[in-house]
Simulated scan of single mutants.
Amino acid sequence: MERSSDAAQTRGRGARRSPFDRFVEQAELRVSQAPFFFVCAGIVVAWLISLPWWTDLKAWQIAIHTVASVFTLLLVVLLENAGRRTSEASQEKLNVIAEALAALLASSAFNDPELRTAAERLREAVGLEDRH
């Protein structure tokens, strides 16, 4: 009854993650640290200071809005991807724990119908989680 879980298979692949997967991981790591915040704050300060060099106030505003919009879109996509991966990993761990608990209950439930019922209900609940 030995079955390899999705998480175990992924761990087995190890370094064979795609370049995009590694990029998302590094981007999430960098974006969540203080230096990234200070770089963003520096860009805003530089934009504010640059006002005298712009002849059109509207173009000055459009410049920061365009850059911020594009940058925000890219970051949202990357961070959502990272969040999805984290959620899937957590769900896989919970499913493995539930499966182990169900197996433990089933092995102990030989003479106890209440435990047998609990193990069956737990297995049904775990089976409802369709992933990937």
Results as ranks from 00 to 15, higher is better:
residue 57 L to G: 02
residue 91 Q to H: 00
residue 112 D to T: 02
residue 88 E to N: 10
residue 126 V to A: 12
residue 42 G to D: 08
residue 31 V to C: 03
residue 32 S to Y: 00
residue 32 S to R: 14
residue 4 S to L: 13
residue 19 P to S: 10
residue 43 I to K: 08
residue 4 S to N: 08
residue 6 D to N: 03
residue 124 E to Y: 06
residue 39 V to D: 08
residue 115 L to A: 09
residue 62 I to P: 00
residue 128 L to N: 09
residue 25 E to Q: 12
residue 98 A to K: 05
residue 52 P to E: 08
residue 8 A to Y: 04
residue 112 D to Y: 06
residue 75 L to K: 00
residue 126 V to L: 02
residue 4 S to H: 00
residue 97 I to F: 02
residue 10 T to K: 09
residue 21 D to G: 08
residue 56 D to Y: 05
residue 105 L to G: 00
residue 83 G to T: 09
residue 115 L to R: 11
residue 25 E to A: 14
residue 108 S to F: 03
residue 66 T to D: 12
residue 112 D to L: 06
residue 59 A to M: 13
residue 131 R to I: 11
residue 11 R to E: 14
residue 25 E to L: 07
residue 108 S to Q: 12
residue 49 I to V: 15
residue 24 V to Y: 05
residue 100 A to D: 08
residue 61 Q to D: 13
residue 56 D to G: 01
residue 24 V to L: 04
residue 132 H to L: 05
residue 104 L to W: 06
residue 128 L to S: 04
residue 23 F to G: 02
residue 5 S to D: 08
residue 88 E to Q: 09
residue 64 I to W: 01
residue 121 R to M: 07
residue 50 S to R: 11
residue 132 H to F: 07
residue 129 E to H: 11
residue 87 S to K: 14
residue 126 V to S: 06
residue 54 W to R: 10
residue 16 R to W: 09
residue 115 L to F: 04
residue 41 A to C: 02
residue 60 W to M: 07
residue 4 S to Y: 00
residue 114 E to R: 09
residue 53 W to Q: 14
residue 114 E to T: 14
residue 126 V to D: 01
residue 74 L to M: 11
residue 55 T to R: 14
residue 66 T to S: 08
residue 45 V to Y: 11
residue 47 W to V: 08
residue 60 W to P: 00
residue 75 L to E: 00
residue 119 A to F: 01
residue 8 A to V: 07
residue 98 A to C: 01
residue 4 S to C: 10
residue 109 A to V: 01
residue 116 R to W: 03
residue 22 R to A: 11
residue 90 S to I: 10
residue 58 K to L: 13
residue 125 A to W: 02
residue 22 R to H: 05
residue 71 F to P: 01
residue 36 F to L: 11
residue 63 A to W: 13
residue 30 R to T: 15
residue 48 L to Y: 05
residue 97 I to V: 04
residue 27 A to N: 04
residue 52 P to I: 13
residue 75 L to D: 02
residue 21 D to W: 07
residue 53 W to A: 15
residue 124 E to T: 13
residue 107 S to P: 02
residue 67 V to H: 01
residue 5 S to H: 03
residue 65 H to R: 15
residue 123 R to A: 09
residue 1 M to S: 14
residue 13 R to T: 05
residue 98 A to D: 05
residue 13 R to N: 12
residue 36 F to I: 02
residue 96 V to K: 05
residue 129 E to Y: 04
residue 15 A to T: 02
residue 45 V to G: 07
residue 123 R to M: 00
residue 25 E to V: 00
residue 96 V to F: 00
residue 26 Q to T: 14
residue 21 D to K: 04
residue 79 L to C: 04
residue 37 F to R: 14
residue 115 L to S: 06
residue 43 I to Y: 09
residue 64 I to L: 15
residue 90 S to E: 06
residue 16 R to C: 06
residue 20 F to W: 13
residue 94 L to S: 06
residue 54 W to M: 11
residue 38 F to R: 13
residue 132 H to I: 07
residue 100 A to T: 07
residue 56 D to S: 14
residue 45 V to A: 15
residue 43 I to F: 12
residue 6 D to F: 05
residue 108 S to T: 04
residue 105 L to D: 04
residue 53 W to H: 07
residue 31 V to Q: 09
residue 75 L to W: 04
residue 1 M to L: 05
residue 65 H to L: 15
residue 116 R to F: 03
residue 26 Q to R: 15
residue 54 W to H: 14
residue 94 L to I: 05
residue 79 L to I: 12
residue 85 R to D: 14
residue 118 A to R: 10
residue 112 D to I: 10
residue 55 T to N: 12
residue 91 Q to L: 14
residue 42 G to A: 06
residue 59 A to N: 13
residue 112 D to K: 01
residue 68 A to E: 06
residue 82 A to D: 08
